[in-house]
Design a binder for these strands. Structure first.
Lengths: 129, 129
DNA sequence: CCGCATCCGTTACGATACTG
DNA sequence: CAGTATCGTAACGGATGCGG
């Protein structure tokens, strides 16, 4: 019932507009999962260590689909086991997320001792999300 | 009374950690203003076209100061007319914000017709925030 | 005036239970 | 498995007040 992509754009500034879409606690994390793992189902996304709740995940997926940052792997098929993947728009956020992660490793480690460091091993598998 | 930088880190992932700090509607917008204009006072920040409210601005400034992304220009002086500026940590978000703006210009223009385009003039002054 | 703090209504989020 | 319904909590947003 909520397949609307109604965003209220706060201004014409591109940075502000990007944040109107992505400036919340979850959207970029979903995109991160799709960047790291490739296509992922609803239940796989739920298993990420940050523990998004089911209603929020469903709402964000709707929004990101509406904005064409992600899409179903098989648009015609049933929703069951039908993973989500990045569109080209979504994929192009990859360098930005990488940069954001690099920034955090350098500038947040003093406030978050356990943050994964630059040379922490196993950086692209399940245990290091 | 709220000078606490208590963040609850959702995971050890650097990207997630960056979003624990910056993943809200306002923090990166404040940082954008300081990148674009240089040092800015509380009331100048209030005048940005996205219209943050006073209590939210005060809370976010506290948080960003606590995380050392911004600081007062003159730490000893009174708060009156004492602008905020970026620290080095904050300044290093600049390329990320630029990239985010570039991404938005390309990938959101279909959803937000009025978004400032790449060759929109007057891109660094007051009227184009 | 400027830099907030407080109050309070509204909206977003979050956990859990439940349904097709 | 992929969500929706419900309901409590936290964040936001506007108005206003108050000290310096």
């Amino acid at each position: 019932m909520k397949s609307d992509s109604e965003i209220d754009w706060r201004s014409v500034c591109p940075i502000s507009s990007a944040l109107d879409v992505l400036g919340d606690k979850w959207s970029l994390l979903i995109i991160r999962d799709l960047i790291v793992h490739g296509p992922r189902t609803y239940s796989e996304l739920l298993k990420s260590p940050e523990h998004i709740s089911t209603n929020i995940l469903a709402a964000r997926l709707d929004l990101l689909v509406g904005l064409k940052l992600i899409q179903r792997v098989n648009p015609q098929a049933s929703q069951r086991n039908n993973a989500f993947q990045l569109t080209e728009s979504g994929t192009e956020l990859r360098p930005i997320l990488i940069a954001l992660g690099g920034w955090a490793q350098v500038h947040l480690k003093h406030f978050h001792a356990d943050i994964l460091g630059i040379n922490t091993p196993n950086h692209s598998k399940k245990s290091t999300q």
